[in-house]
Simulated scan of single mutants.
Amino acid sequence: MIEHLEELILEILIRLPVKSLVRFRCVSKSWCAWIDSQHFISLHLQHSINTQTNLHVILSDCENKTDHYSLAFDEVFDEPLTKFNNVFTSDKGYKIVGSCKGLLCLSYSIPKNERLILWNPFTRRYKKLPTARVSKLRLSPAYRYGFGYDDVSNDYMVLKLIPSYGLKSYRHIGNEAEVYSLRLNSWKRVENFPYSEFKFLRSACFVNGSLYWLVYFESYRMEAQDFESPWLIVAFSLEDEEFRELPLPSTSNKDDDLKYLGVGESYDFDLAVLDGCLCFLKIYDSNAVEVWVMKQYGEEEFWSRLHLLIPDGFYDSDESGFVKSLAYSKNGEKLLLETQQKALIWYDLKKSDNKVYTFPDVLPYFDANMCFESLVSLGDGSKYDGSV
């Protein structure tokens, strides 16, 4: 009878939000030990991921970058925004560069003054990462980051790319790479980094144990290289720390690449994560978007395509194209998009009655990321709110 009662309690507790679980730690010493155990933390997080519950859209203010808000994931965003305590005191603010299994990675990077933070916004704990090794190349503020989790070593990891530029030409001259381990709380250099001459765009996407970047080889170097296209998707496995390459979906060809690089009508490329799958987005200046979703991983990648048309008024072709896929609805019939950093759109994949949400009084411009509530610990050296 007692065993059945404990199983019932466990089934109830793994469904609860973090705020309730933190409060229930005070019920007894045994409940506290239970909720704090790695086994329970893993069960709670995995249940949330499997059922798409305890999921939030994290909105970061693009104007006042120290402010971050939470919006409970729902097909009807009728609840008010919840503002997080401002624990990031820099006037410049911190940018979210990755979200993974209940943690966020934030960066504030200027030459010779880099700061990285891992943050659990629901337990209100954060950890400032130690300073990485100083690059031997000329430092650039345009660092690129990837944040993910290795199931084998049970470790959260950050991959940092350091692009550098010539002192006189200001041309890109190379990259270095370093990997941070939360379990070891230390950095190490990636030896023989194979993509020194490529440019890495934005931050990486974490999918299925690997970090994925969209990269390109600059046009002025193309003549000396045997490339069919300057564009590649580069994957970095967190388990074995090996790189591999993936071609873009087959619709991309050399003419398309030339258009992107300035010949003819332009559009943008990007990567995103959707329902645990890697997505390649091809964003036209006519408010049309192709979303290619990778359904199979390994030597033979398989992409499936969605064709979207952003509603009028929420895509400005005069600005740089920006559309980001965030999540499917629970029934899979709608797709949540962020457009131009000013609107969330529930895009109906079967009908045309899309729902648009803006927050002009609080967040006229924002950056959106998905994050599950979790009890994941940041280990020794973590802090509870306060100044960074």
Rank of each mutant, 00 (worst) to 15 (best):
L5C: 12
I9M: 15
E11A: 08
I12A: 01
R15K: 11
K19N: 01
R23W: 11
R25G: 09
S28K: 02
K29V: 01
S30E: 14
W31C: 06
S37C: 04
I41A: 14
L43D: 11
H47L: 05
T51V: 05
N54L: 01
I58F: 11
H68P: 06
Y69D: 06
S70Q: 11
F77D: 01
D78M: 01
F88S: 08
K92F: 13
K92W: 10
Y94C: 12
Y94P: 01
I96M: 09
C100F: 00
L104Y: 08
C105K: 03
S107A: 15
S109L: 04
N113F: 12
R115G: 05
T123L: 09
R124G: 04
K127P: 05
K128S: 09
R133K: 09
R133A: 05
R138F: 13
A142D: 14
F147G: 05
D155T: 03
I162A: 10
Y165M: 10
S169W: 06
R171Q: 14
R171I: 08
H172C: 14
E176W: 07
V179L: 15
V179I: 15
L182P: 02
R189D: 13
E191V: 11
P194W: 07
F200S: 11
S203R: 01
S210G: 00
Y216V: 00
R221A: 05
A224T: 10
F227L: 14
L238E: 07
P247L: 11
S252D: 03
S252M: 15
D257F: 07
D268H: 09
L274K: 09
G276S: 12
I283S: 15
Y284N: 09
D285V: 08
N287F: 10
V289M: 01
E300G: 02
E300R: 12
R305M: 13
L308G: 10
I310R: 04
P311L: 09
Y315I: 03
D318L: 14
S325P: 06
E338W: 08
E338F: 08
K342C: 13
S352I: 07
Y357S: 12
D367I: 04
F372K: 06
L375R: 06
V376F: 00
